[in-house]
């Protein structure tokens, strides 16, 4: 499997979108740093504030969209270059190929998340703060990237299943992410409708946010009392997202296996 993952990375050589994504992760903190310098992020300051904004507001939007596009690139690559037959006659099973591609998504998610952490450190430095609780922030970055990558897998099912164009995949990923995002930050708190509650509990982003909020909303802030009943412990969030990810993984592998080589 390690060989397959290594080969998946080799295949991305000269695909400039991937390096652009990492670069974007490094640039994304600029507006948040500006916000922090303007002093408009509640009780948090400096590095804590930039990091908190990036992890709760930046990554939930950027990471799924980026990974959705990269997933389309990875899963369409064999179809577009007609290489599936070469892989099958080695032989490499479709399940292993699909697994390697999903592993690449997780690794890229991790790289993106760590790049975000590094750039938030630079932003924090500009805001004049010292680096505190680095270990905890690395931990939060890693967990956030794993959770959001797993949360992208349902849309990857549709990308692989429909096997359409890149544009279609980008639009699909964008709508899925925005719907998930809006539900996480507004819908799940605003609506009392049972259907909305059910969707909020099924979709990954609202669930992840209920753990993130517990980390980043200060008990002194007015929002705390509103959000506090929704807080979830990490193990419930991990379990929920793991189930979503595992079911999605099995579906992707099954669908990809049916692609004609």
């Amino acid at each position: 499997m390690l060989k397959l993952i290594k080969c998946e990375f080799w295949k991305l050589k000269r695909k400039h979108f991937v390096s652009f994504v990492i670069f974007a992760a490094l640039l994304f903190p600029i507006p948040f740093t500006a916000l922090v310098l303007a002093g408009s992020v509640g009780n948090f300051t400096g590095f804590d504030a930039v990091f908190g904004l990036l992890v709760t507001l930046g990554e939930p939007v950027m990471l799924p969209i980026v990974l959705g596009i990269v997933a389309a690139m990875l899963f369409f690559m064999e179809r577009d270059s007609d290489t599936l037959k070469n892989l099958h006659t080695i032989p490499v099973s479709p399940a292993k190929i699909a697994s390697a591609k999903i592993a690449v998504l997780f690794i890229l998610g991790l790289i993106y998340s760590l790049a975000t952490l590094i750039s938030s450190m630079v932003g924090g430095l500009m805001a004049g703060s010292e680096f505190v609780n680095i270990g905890e922030k690395v931990w939060i970055s890693v967990v956030t990237s794993l959770l959001y990558t797993a949360s992208t897998l349902p849309v990857v099912i549709i990308i692989v299943w429909l096997n359409r164009s890149y544009i279609f995949s980008i639009i699909l990923t964008f709508f899925y992410t925005m719907f998930d995002y809006m539900l996480a930050y507004g819908g799940q708190f605003a609506s009392k409708e049972p259907a909305m509650k059910l969707i909020s509990n099924i979709l990954p982003a609202p669930t992840i946010y209920r753990w993130q909020a517990a980390q980043f909303v200060s008990p002194d802030s007015p929002a705390y009392s509103v959000l506090e009943p929704y807080f979830l412990p990490l193990w419930i969030v991990v379990l929920t997202v793991f189930i979503i990810g595992a079911v999605s993984y099995l579906a992707i592998v099954k669908i990809y296996g049916k692609h004609e080589s």
Binding site: L4, W10, R14, M77, D82, T83, N86, L87, T89, I90
Partner: peptide, 23 residues
């Protein structure tokens, strides 16, 4: 089998390196 299938963004050596690694 049928038309040659390789990754267009890679050179010939890079393409063969991938399949050699997998073999």
């Amino acid at each position: 089998i049928e038309s040659p299938g390789f990754y267009p963004n890679l050179t010939a050596t890079e393409n063969l390196k991938i399949f050699a690694e997998l073999r």
